[in-house]
Design a protein around this nucleic acid. Structure first.
Length: 108
DNA sequence: ATTCGCTTGCGTCACGTAGG
DNA sequence: CCTACGTGACGCAAGCGAAT
């Protein structure tokens, strides 16, 4: 099995993966100037990041399900096409044999 | 009844891509 | 740029039949 050999990939450790959360990467103690219209404490920012992550995970979960469903459908479709083509091929081979018989010179 | 190998489905991460 | 989405890859757990 060829795996994408990059070092960021699975190390075998238990995956307590860190999400890319730029807003939570603020140095401790740094307080953002209160932007007009949105006062956010670090606590609120963290909660927001968590919320976004959960939302993303939920959406991705659903997307993965849908993706797999489509893939299964696609494979089924291919399989039935193979079945049809096999039958068709068999018929053509039979037809060829018949024609060969008809056209072959008689040996008597 | 237990063990083993295989298959299947799921959740998650990482990455590429399209659209704003 | 940034964001949302689709999908391949991975690890994990459960189900299942065959072998012991």
């Amino acid at each position: 099995m060829a795996v994408t050999g990059d070092e960021t990939a699975t190390t075998g450790d238990m995956p307590t993966y860190q999400i890319r959360a730029p807003t939570t990467a603020l140095p401790q103690g740094v307080v953002m100037a209160a932007s007009p219209g949105s006062l956010h404490s670090p606590q609120q920012l963290a909660e927001e990041a968590t919320r976004k992550r959960e939302l993303r995970l939920m959406k991705n979960r659903e997307a993965a399900k849908e993706c797999r469903r489509r893939k299964k459908e696609y494979v089924k479709c291919l399989e039935s096409r193979v079945a049809v083509l096999e039958v068709q091929n068999k018929k053509l081979i039979e037809e060829l044999e018949t024609l060969k018989d008809i056209c072959s010179p008689k040996t008597d």
